[in-house]
Design a protein around this nucleic acid. Structure first.
Lengths: 209, 209
DNA sequence: GCCATGACCAAATGTTTGTTCGGTACCATG
DNA sequence: CATGGTACCGAACAAACATTTGGTCATGGC
């Protein structure tokens, strides 16, 4: 006969109280995002995730159908939110220079708020390019790129962006410099998100020399 | 009794001739670098590497002691070469502005020549931070950063870099924008390495607006 | 032309992987 | 106080993994 141990051992959280179903789901997503971000998706095992959440690996499957489903929800939540915020800037209209500044500030604030999701997106989106269930990742990336290109091109015609720049290249440089900061930016560090954004805007608009 | 098949099947390369030991080693390193770059180290199996090289997985171990040894040699070769070239710029001295331009041009040319090694370094170096045998990765990264910071600081005192910039932050932005281009730069594409470098320097020195 | 060397194959190793499943203890509801 | 639903455990699963081993066959030096 098999006797299960008490759930007191590891199954409870938040001061001994059993977390609600919704809380456990969020906890698993948060824990998975952090592990995917630091060790990579392929380098993270379901046992790693479970241990970090205080349960056993098999119990994950009461909340998610697979390890991949965790990655999917992390990326989907991140991308929809990011796209909505970017689209809001464009919908709002106004000065292209202000719009571009807003796009950049949103990016940095997104890194500040959800660094793990950003890192997962950056590290895994390339590998997911051909995967069937992850086509939406490339879709959102393209739509986001189009927003940026429209804003920057508008900036060129309105005179706040130099006309001799290759807009696509400039976008790629700006995008990479901004998003890559997730690797060294620490929310608890001395540099706050706004300062980093300001410094980057200063470099971008004033130039290096 | 066990009978091994002829080696004709997959063990030969280069028009049917058996590659030399040195050639096979180089081939395995090249193939592993490409796979590590596109699928990640953890996402690449020894069978993947072997198949791409036309041999069986076990045969890899006649050339390398482990899968990790492949990663090690890829990173070590890349980092020593890169560091040497950067150090050469600093040793040469001269105008800080010229030196900084050279650092950037070397970076882009390095991406052009060995994109896979660059990608592997970018994707895996963070995960290797604590690993015993890979301490040299962080060492080289630090030494390279110090070269850049010295050059940029020299540029500040000599007046070619604005004094109100946070040099460390500016370095991080430049570094990330430059190295991240490995994700979209294609050596065979219309944009050649020099053009990309020029465009980036134009953006960097002239500013966006 | 013979033979030793070594590059490779074929097969098996033990471990780790994602996932499944039957049972158990907790909790809310009556 | 009974009871049903469910969140989780404990154990198992097959598949995939990096690595080991022993045998085989081509090749280059004699």
């Amino acid at each position: 006969m098999v006797v299960a141990k008490s759930r007191e051992q590891g199954g409870k959280r938040e001061g001994g109280r059993t977390p609600s179903r919704a809380d456990r789901r969020e906890q698993l997503l948060a824990v998975a995002a952090e592990l995917f971000a630091t060790r990579g998706y392929a380098g993270t095992t379901t046992r790693d995730i479970a241990e970090a959440a205080g349960i056993l690996a098999g119990s994950i499957y009461h909340h998610f159908p697979s390890k991949e489903a965790l990655l999917d929800e992390i990326l989907r939540t991140f991308l929809t939110r990011l796209y909505d915020r970017f689209a809001g800037v464009e919908r709002q209209g106004g000065d292209p220079r202000e719009a571009l500044i807003n796009l950049i500030k949103i990016s940095f604030s997104c890194i500040h708020d959800t660094p793990h999701a950003v890192a997962v997106y950056q590290n895994e989106s390339d590998n997911l390019a051909g995967e069937k269930g992850f086509a939406y990742v490339a879709d959102y990336s393209l739509r986001i790129e189009q927003i940026w290109l429209r804003v920057m091109t508008a900036g060129q015609t309105s005179g706040v962006v130099r006309p001799d720049l290759d807009v696509k290249l400039a976008y790629l440089f700006i995008r990479d410099a901004v998003w890559s900061s997730v690797r060294w930016y620490r929310a608890k560090g001395p540099l706050q998100s706004d300062n980093v954004a300001d410094q980057y805007l200063k470099l971008l608009y004033g130039g290096l020399g």
